[in-house]
């Protein structure tokens, strides 16, 4: 059964969309990852224009981060003060990102930048995950908690603020900077950016691990909401029908994944996830390097 996507302007099988949403949903339920960094490349592989894939995925992440953030909120694991600082940066970064997106689109380099960003980030994350999961698999012993509160130059930054919930006294410029960097990625890549923000909050800010996920999800809700609105206004690339079917599949998948997570050992599955990430990275990279079958591309308008 096919459906015509009104903004992407292509006809696509409903079950392919539900299946993709479901598959990525299972992975996110199983591993607690957002899934945007897998969903966007998959949509591109399906033939959805990269610009539409990125903007629509931001819309979907709004939904998945709300349900995640609410769960953490109920347990009291969201540091609102920190979240607001991350959000200030996130709004600045994502607004700039959407503006950059429109310029890249106009000069015909948007697809390249989206693909390159994915190759770089998926390559780094996949490799780190792979090494980490192999290590835990071999050692099977508790990880040492990351060393915190070391003194770097970053602790000399001005505008220090008290973050009571996290028990931190650091410069507000730090979370604003992290938020801004993640905001740019959200706009250009259609991801929540948890995979960058979470390690940055643990290692750079020294936040307690328990607060990190809920606080980052809090920021992601509003940043992806900002990206969705700005993309809709500036680039007309948000496809609400596409988002709807991905959401539907994603909700079902995430519940299945969460059930599975209680039954299987996730360490051994992490190797599997890292291989998926590396596989997607290699496919995207290969497409950039290999001589294309068609050297020419068309786009409406311009000049």
């Amino acid at each position: 059964m096919n459906i015509y996507l009104p903004v992407a302007e292509i006809s696509i099988n409903i079950f392919v969309l539900l299946g993709l949403g479901g598959a990525v949903g299972i992975l996110s339920g199983l591993f607690g990852v957002g899934g945007g960094f897998l969903m966007t490349p998959m949509l591109i592989f399906l033939g959805i224009p990269p610009a539409v894939a990125v903007a629509t995925e931001a819309n979907q992440i709004v939904a998945s981060s709300v349900s995640g953030a609410l769960a953490h909120w109920r347990r009291g694991n969201v540091d609102i003060t920190m979240g607001v600082m991350l959000l200030i940066g996130g709004v600045i970064g994502s607004s700039g990102g959407v503006w950059l997106f429109a310029i890249l689109r106009e000069i015909g380099q948007l697809d390249l930048v989206i693909r390159l960003s994915y190759v770089v980030f998926l390559g780094i994350i996949g490799a780190l995950m792979f090494v980490e999961s192999i290590r835990t698999y071999l050692r099977r012993r508790q990880n040492k908690l990351p060393e915190r509160r070391r003194h770097y130059w970053i602790h000399g930054l001005p505008f220090k603020m008290k973050f009571r919930k996290s028990g931190l006294y650091v410069s507000a410029l730090l979370p604003i900077g992290i938020g801004a960097a993640v905001g740019i990625l959200a706009a250009i890549m259609g991801v929540g950016g948890g995979f960058i923000m979470v390690p940055a909050m643990i290692y750079l800010l020294g936040m307690p691990t328990i607060m990190v996920v809920g606080t980052s999800l809090f920021q992601i809700i509003f940043v992806t909401a900002n990206v969705t609105v700005l993309q809709a206004v500036n680039n007309y690339t948000v496809d609400i029908v596409l988002a709807f079917f991905l959401l539907l599949g994603g909700i079902i998948g995430a519940q299945i994944g969460a059930q599975m997570a209680t039954k299987v050992k996730s360490e051994s599955l992490r190797i599997f996830l890292s291989l998926i990430v590396l596989g997607v990275c290699l496919k995207l990279g290969f497409d950039l390097v290999v001589t294309p079958a068609d050297l020419y591309s068309l786009s409406a308008g311009a000049e």
Binding site: N59, Q60, V62, S65, V66, A225, A232, A243, I251
Partner: peptide, 9 residues
């Protein structure tokens, strides 16, 4: 689009 996603979530 954002409202639909928020309600869904």
């Amino acid at each position: 689009a954002v409202l639909v996603a928020l309600i869904f979530g």
